[in-house]
Design a protein around this nucleic acid. Structure first.
Length: 277
DNA sequence: CACGCCTCCTGTGCGC
DNA sequence: TGCGCACAGGAGGCGT
């Protein structure tokens, strides 16, 4: 669900609330899928910051009495959301709350996740290679100088999968998901199934990715159903989508009805007339 | 290693 | 109204 703009919008609300807070207690439902791990290390730790890398939220913690620096890693998966209770008890019990983190100010941070695709783990700070391989191999942050057109073009040229699959892969560029992949490819006029993207078109796609992510962050993300910010508000980007979810509606450039297909097992909407192979 | 298919979960909306 | 199926913002595992 949440892609980079949604996770960044959550982070911006979460950081001032969590930074400096100490964890009093943690409860979670032990799912068989091991996506929740080592949360027993949280009580007593202080949350030093809330960072984002791709679609991951990273919360560095103060060192344990043993001196080990730890990090809380959260991933919202498709349907994850975070919110606070004001009192210790739940006046309004939410369904599908998987993790509760009780803080030293009396509030509880709740991690709700109906489909259980999200993740919550405590790891030794920065130790991702063995524990969270996708985080270890994440591509450059698209809104940082590390994401440059030349490197992006070279990475696109190095493999032969459909360009949309490469955008979803997270190793070429971090944080792009199904919505913004369709939006960026539409803007750059590149067919999502194209396996050849040359230097020129790579530069156009690079620019389109930066644009769609930047404007989506300004609108605090795209809400369909589950995605909410920490304060419960919806993002405002849904009405600005030009490709994702717009199948059968006219292309805003050429008027051709947009088509839906499946690429990399994901629903994909594109204009067969102005997005070229 | 690259690629592509299947799976993990739960809920919702649609056609019949 | 009820049932079954397709589909949903992500990504991990496995076979080729």
């Amino acid at each position: 669900m949440p892609e980079l703009p949604e996770v960044e919008s959550v982070r911006r609300q979460l950081a001032p609330e969590l930074t400096g807070r100490r964890v009093r207690d943690v409860t979670w439902d032990a799912s068989p899928s091991a996506r929740i791990s080592d949360l027993d290390l949280l009580p007593g730790r202080r949350i030093e910051a809330v960072h984002r890398r791709g679609k991951f939220l990273l919360c560095p913690l103060d060192p344990t009495p043993d001196g080990d620096p730890l990090e809380l890693v959260l991933h919202l998966g498709m349907t994850g959301s975070l919110s606070f209770t004001t009192t210790g008890g739940d006046t309004d019990p939410l369904p599908h709350v998987r993790v509760r983190i009780d803080l030293d100010d009396g509030r509880t941070l709740r991690f709700r996740d109906p489909r259980r695709f999200g993740r919550a783990s405590v790891v030794p700070a920065g130790d991702y290679v063995d524990r969270i391989p996708t985080l270890a191999t994440l591509g450059p942050e698209p809104l940082s100088p590390a994401f440059d057109p030349g490197g992006f073009a070279a990475a696109l040229a190095a493999t032969s999968a459909p360009v949309k699959a490469k955008l979803l892969d997270q190793r070429l560029v971090a944080g792009v998901g199904n919505i913004y992949a369709d939006e960026a490819l539409w803007r750059a006029r590149i067919h999502p199934a194209s396996r050849r993207v040359g230097r020129r078109r790579a530069a156009a796609l690079h620019g389109a990715i930066v644009e769609v992510l930047t404007s989506a962050i300004e609108r605090e993300g795209t809400t369909f159903r589950d995605y909410r910010m920490v304060n419960g508000a919806s993002g405002r980007n849904a009405t600005h989508l030009l490709a994702y979810g717009q199948a059968d509606r006219p292309c805003q450039r050429c008027g051709e009805p947009l088509r839906r297909t499946v690429i990399a097992q994901r629903g994909t909407t594109f204009c067969a007339r102005c997005q070229r192979h």
